[in-house]
């Protein structure tokens, strides 16, 4: 196996393992789940780097691990719930549905990978010059997808105003 391939399998195994650690052991402090999620973001960022999408990898760490997960840990630490307050998790329909969904996704992805693995040749894998750089992403965002970019901006503005209105209900 090539060096890059070994790195890929290590990163992929790490990403799956940490993702499982987010949800699997029950009745544990939620802070460990948050930490496992941060680690899994790092593994996914590593896979982005292997795909030559450097900017995506950095943004993944900057936005998810560095900003959103800080707020998650902030809230978990602020509430600092004990085991009693978290309550017992009930075994019910939702869990059964979750297991079913996981099984479905695994089977479906195996089918898709099996069908498409042979059609991906070595020739059409060549990357265009400047792939994954800030310039190319900005070009896509501000030229080709300008309308959707502006729409997302309006959506975020609406979300911000909504959050302010909800927080200041007693204004």
């Amino acid at each position: 196996m090539e060096f890059i391939q070994i790195v890929f399998w290590l990163l992929a195994a790490g990403a799956i393992l940490t993702s499982l650690m987010v949800v699997l052991p029950r009745g544990r402090n939620p802070l460990y789940g948050a930490l496992a999620l941060i680690l899994s973001f790092f593994f996914v960022a590593g896979i982005y780097v292997l795909l030559v999408a450097h900017t995506m990898a950095i943004l993944q760490i900057l936005v998810y691990a560095g900003a959103i997960m800080v707020l998650f840990t902030f809230v978990i630490m602020l509430l600092n719930l004990s085991k009693r307050e978290l309550g017992e998790e009930s075994k019910n329909l939702a869990q059964a549905l979750g297991v079913g969904a996981v099984a479905f996704i695994i089977i479906k992805s195996i089918i898709i990978v099996d069908a498409s693995a042979d059609s991906v040749g070595g020739d059409n894998l060549a990357l265009p010059k400047g792939f994954g750089t800030i310039e190319s992403i900005a070009d896509q965002m501000f030229h080709r997808h300008l309308l959707s970019f502006e729409l997302i901006a309006i959506l975020l503005l609406v979300a911000v105003i909504g959050a302010v209105v909800l927080a200041k209900r007693t204004l």
């Binding site: 950095i58 760490i61 560095g66």
Partner: peptide
């Protein structure tokens, strides 16, 4: 940007 990603950690 790399530096900001690391600094946020």
């Amino acid at each position: 940007l790399f530096m900001f990603a690391v600094m946020s950690l």
